[in-house]
Write a protein that binds this DNA or RNA. Sequence first.
DNA 1: CATGAATGAGGCTTCATTCAT
DNA 2: CATGAATGAAGCCTCATTCAT
Lengths: 191, 191, 191, 191
Amino acid sequence: MEEKSKKERLIQAAIKLFAQQGYHNTTVAEIADEAGVAKGTVYWYFSSKEELFWGIIVSGAELVNNKLAKEAEQNNKTAVEKIEAIIRLHISYFKKGKNIVKMTQECSASPGENFYKEIQQLRKVAINSVAKIIKEGQENGELVADIQAKELANFILGAIGGAYNPSIYELEDVEETTDLILKIIFKGIKV
Amino acid sequence: MEEKSKKERLIQAAIKLFAQQGYHNTTVAEIADEAGVAKGTVYWYFSSKEELFWGIIVSGAELVNNKLAKEAEQNNKTAVEKIEAIIRLHISYFKKGKNIVKMTQECSASPGENFYKEIQQLRKVAINSVAKIIKEGQENGELVADIQAKELANFILGAIGGAYNPSIYELEDVEETTDLILKIIFKGIKV
Amino acid sequence: MEEKSKKERLIQAAIKLFAQQGYHNTTVAEIADEAGVAKGTVYWYFSSKEELFWGIIVSGAELVNNKLAKEAEQNNKTAVEKIEAIIRLHISYFKKGKNIVKMTQECSASPGENFYKEIQQLRKVAINSVAKIIKEGQENGELVADIQAKELANFILGAIGGAYNPSIYELEDVEETTDLILKIIFKGIKV
Amino acid sequence: MEEKSKKERLIQAAIKLFAQQGYHNTTVAEIADEAGVAKGTVYWYFSSKEELFWGIIVSGAELVNNKLAKEAEQNNKTAVEKIEAIIRLHISYFKKGKNIVKMTQECSASPGENFYKEIQQLRKVAINSVAKIIKEGQENGELVADIQAKELANFILGAIGGAYNPSIYELEDVEETTDLILKIIFKGIKV
DNA sequence: CATGAATGAGGCTTCATTCAT
DNA sequence: CATGAATGAAGCCTCATTCAT
């Protein structure tokens, strides 16, 4: 009796290999091998290589997006607190789901793929959640008002992704990154 | 007599198609077609599809890195001014070289490719230039001192790239993006 | 249900076409066609065109080399008998494996190919077996002693290959060739 | 002013490279490079790669064949002397024209090429010359009569080629090879 | 459910040959 | 005579996907 279902093993194998080697440099055969199943079996659980890849991305992105939406709807928090929560949320997700994050980054940077347009859709949803928080903060005077909420939301999410560059520094201590981002976004770097 | 050399036409065709369709979804045949030359001609000027792609990336990255390095060596500017110049430099490069930027982003997010490690090297060079400026600013009291220079450099470059997400908003007016970034990085968003 | 496995059919097709047209003038597509399988199937069974070619050569050469080695180790035969056996062995192999012999000849005469050095290795093994027999014959006075054993071995094997030139005379009656070689090698042609 | 004509330089370059790398692994560009001329120039002197290759083979083969024919027509020599002369002729040719010999061997073992049939024709001419000598020797009682002259001629020429295996022993001292062949062919190896 | 042999479209690359200069 | 940029046919190989068992 195996510990995990074949489907689960396939997903785990896919995450590992896609993150390591990228979408195009990972073959269905390799994934099946890594999961310990036959190549044909992949097609019983997933209709295509693309669906397998995209399914993983979506599961991760929706997880984050749902938490983002919930955060935006909180009533007993200031906007600053919510933004801080959002940043912590992302960083902790990056920490746990390093491989899926890498996949998502590749996904976001691969024009010409079917999933390229779809990932942008997901990004827009995230931006909307954050923008909502920002607008509140601007309306109640917590945040500076001379910035477009959506653009700021885009900046914050982009900065998080940009700062978390797992390939450069192998940041094991991502807590530091969190603090860095919070500090800059809230206080700037000028004395 | 044609206006541009075949080599130049090939490069332009490659930039256009790689940016639009991604590296793997663009065939050498398409590039040749777009450039109006025979397939074999590509190999007269470039030793492989990869070299063609990577050559374009490098030309762009070195351009920016050289300017970055020069900026870091300026003597008659404050650190803040230098950082502002760097941000303007990037944004103006993004504006002109939209397609090459897209290619670079794909390149940076494609593990398993030969150029993946090389692009990281280029990124490190850029980070070093920016970190040098930051250190100066911290030493002369312009910038807050409780942040690691290299991490901050990584954040700034990452934030620029993250904020400039041409696929989301088709930001024609990138000047706004510049101002946004400057404002946040220097002053933060809290009132 | 087909009579032979696809792998076997591929090998037979390859032998036929390689012998007829040579290595470089035979395409993988032709071999697949001749075998009645798809082009891709070739690569399910063989890792490359070269491996397919070389595998056939080796199977034949090892067959002969093994018999040669066994012959060399016989105790109840004179050297002359052994040499006769060796010649008969080759000629009967040539008779049956005409096509593989042709392939081997091409292989041996194609510098610059990866298998060129390897076939020489196989040839050396064969020479050693024959030289061993010759030395015995020289030691016990059966054979003339003023000839280097290895050179003589090389001559004998070379003469067999040279005499058996299937492209010149389409010798169906190879028995005659056997007798010819035996006569000359043992007794010479002078009255 | 260059020492040799371009045509001559091309031929020498071709001989060197064809012998070293084989016909299919040598490109026209390499030959032009080695000769220090432009690729297009090759086609001013030779109509095709094949013609360049074949021209070299023929020049060598005809040289030998002419000498062979002359030898056959000598009146003041015994058959044995003529055969000895033939063998010496070949070995000395092998010594001088190592590279052309290699090319000829490849040529003879490359079915599917246009020159494959032509080289057989040349071989037949050589055999006829030798067979003529043998017949004379058999008629005047010098040589054993129970062997077909043509088959013996084929054997002798084949044995010479087989014995002279430049790739195995790097025989610098080809004189020894000559003696070996003479000894065996005339006297055999049995005591 | 699972397998893995089989498929075939399509990609990258090589290279003999041509031809305008 | 000579050049070398340009061509395009053709080859080897990969791999997502299918399907009979």
